[in-house]
Amino acid sequence: MRRGLKMTLVTVTGAALTLAASACGGQEADTGGGGEDTIKVGLAFDIGGRGDQSFNDSAAAGLDRAKKELNVEIEEISAKPDESDADKESRLRLMANQGHNPIIGVGFAYTAAVNKVAKDFPDTKFLVVDADGCKVEGPNVAAACFAEAEGSYLVGAAAALKSESGKIGFIGGVNVPLIQRFQAGYEAGAKKVKPDIEILPAKYLTQPPNFNGFQDTSLGNEAAKGQLDAGADVIYHAAGAAGIGVIKTVGAAGKWVIGVDSDQYNQPAVAGVKDQILTSMVKNVDVAVFDFVKSVNEDKFEAGSKIYDLKSNGVGYATSGGHVDDIKSQLEELKQQIISGEIKVPEKP
């Protein structure tokens, strides 16, 4: 049954969360007294939070849609670059104790925390976006996973077809298996359409456990300069908010840059160089977030993993700006070959 609610927005600091959560313990969530049943959605962002104009903003778009169309209450909280799993657990426990149900952890780094906390709150539904290994535990936990390699394959093909120097590059935020899937698909797609294309050694901004590579734009700027100096005239980034530095630097140099997660052609932070954004590899995180909230709202929640791929339009490439219009037929042919299984896209570089 659909439940109508008024909308509120709560802002909570990380410090307050940790203190409050430690005081709350592991009690079952208080869903409120008498009267109308309510749904209060809690969403914990990945590093960068709302406003990163990439991965987190795609999740935020899904939350905003749920707020508008389902009229739910929401609370959203951002992560800190140096936080631990314990910090994430505290954040999730606080939201659960406050009666938020469902609760969403945005980013693979929430996988362990969600799996652990969900066991203590069996009546609360949880979602991990980009779950580590696409695996979650428990009857009240779901995972939204994306075929990043498939979408990256298509923008890799676009990069090779558009390159004039014959050299292209890839910049990843943090060297983890998730981001390696972007690299693997990108390189395979480029080689498919132009076997002799030179792909510069991939540059990762940081190594785990340092996740600042998803946030520090100066790191993206410096990495982009290095690949431009090495002759790349198309560079693809999978670096979250740090990728804004990549886009601005490559755009200012008059070369092609490829965005990620959101259609970055339309993001205000890069408006001055948007005509240098060749395309973006789009992950429809907004759809996954909305679908999950709607499923709980309508008592149709299903535990386990769901894959968002090319076939389900969970990933794809952006056409804003018209820069890939002349090669779109080739990209669409490759897309259909991936969907049919004719092309097997690698997930490791």
Rank of each mutant, 00 (worst) to 15 (best):
R3Y: 14
G4W: 12
G4F: 12
T13F: 06
G14Q: 14
A16E: 13
L19P: 02
A20Q: 14
C24P: 01
G34V: 09
D37P: 00
L43H: 00
A44W: 00
G51D: 12
G51F: 13
Q53V: 04
F55K: 11
N56L: 10
A59F: 09
R65K: 15
A66P: 04
K67I: 13
E69T: 14
E73C: 10
E73P: 03
E75D: 06
A86D: 15
R93Q: 15
L94A: 12
A96H: 09
N97C: 15
Q98V: 04
H100P: 01
I103M: 11
V106Q: 03
Y110Q: 02
A112M: 08
D123G: 13
L127W: 02
G133V: 10
K135P: 01
G138C: 05
N140M: 12
V141T: 13
A147D: 09
E150N: 09
G151F: 00
A157E: 01
A159N: 05
A159K: 02
G166W: 12
G166M: 13
G169T: 07
G169D: 08
G173K: 02
V174Y: 07
L178G: 04
Q180G: 06
E187W: 01
A188F: 05
V193D: 00
D196G: 05
L200G: 06
P201V: 10
P201S: 11
Y204C: 07
P209V: 13
G213M: 09
E222Q: 15
A224Q: 05
Q227D: 13
D229P: 00
G231Y: 10
A232G: 06
I235K: 02
Y236R: 08
A239M: 11
I244E: 11
V246T: 14
K248V: 11
T249V: 07
T249W: 07
A252W: 04
G254M: 09
V257Q: 03
Q264T: 07
N266S: 13
Q267M: 15
A271F: 07
T279K: 04
M281A: 12
K283N: 07
V285P: 03
V285Q: 03
N297I: 01
G304A: 10
Y308G: 02
N313P: 08
G314F: 06
D325M: 07
Q330V: 07
E333V: 10
E333I: 05
Q337I: 03
I338C: 01
I339N: 04
I343E: 01
K344G: 03
P346D: 06
